[in-house]
Write a protein that binds this DNA or RNA. Structure first.
Lengths: 113, 113
DNA sequence: AGTAGATACAACTAGCTAGTTGTGTTAGTG
DNA sequence: CACTAACACAACTAGCTAGTTGTATCTACT
């Protein structure tokens, strides 16, 4: 039971918002989703997302900066992997919320039938 | 155990990112944090956040659009309240991640001493 | 040393959006 | 019926950033 202060101090609000901002980009979600299968090089992530090398690299640097992924140099390659498993929990929770909304809409549709 | 498809289809990736985007704004986090104490009018939320009435109203409309809050008209007032409790779980998880990062840094600092 | 491949860095542009200003709209009140 | 209070809507602006283009760095290999 990790309790969070309330009301949230401004600094923490800022931190939380920043964290969410990092996850608010489809490309970064895709990268993290691919990394779920284990570490990958930039080229592999490029393949998985269909984005340009520069773009992949740029997004990875953001994820790295915020500690969501880790970088390991392997010879000429750079292997990226998930560094913070809580991102999956976050995605699960979001999906749960989406699912509930969907069910609500379905309920309304069926109720009107 | 609500499992999420993998790899995530593009549409779902987009939905998830949008959801995170909604939460990526400090003002909206503040509003939700205030609503944790129960429903509130626009004026009360304005008081709690220090923002302008128009700005509060605008952010509330975003939260409403994405189903995170609900609006109830009460005479001349509009009472907003949390409609999706999963936001708190999200914030808790984020805070947990932040806490872990902080501990890591502390470990490093102590290790160097 | 020279070359090729893998990755990172930097500058630029286009699109999005938070906040403001100004103005409706609706509901109570005398 | 004015008048006021509470809220929402619309237009505008400034700042941020995703993606691209161009280039640099770094490593392995011959």
């Amino acid at each position: 039971m990790t309790s969070v202060p309330h009301p949230l101090p401004d600094d923490l609000v800022e931190l939380i918002a920043r964290r969410f901002r990092v996850l608010s980009e489809p490309m970064r979600i895709k990268l993290l989703d691919r990394l779920r299968d284990g570490g990958a090089t930039v080229a592999e992530l490029q393949e998985a997302t269909g984005a340009s090398q520069q773009n992949v690299s740029k997004h990875l640097s953001v994820l790295l900066q915020f500690g969501l992924v880790a970088r390991r140099k392997e010879g000429n390659f750079a292997r990226y992997e998930i560094a913070d498993d809580s991102v999956f929990e976050l995605c699960e929770t979001v999906c749960g919320g989406l699912r509930r909304q969907l069910e609500e809409i379905e309920m309304l549709l069926e109720g009107g039938r």
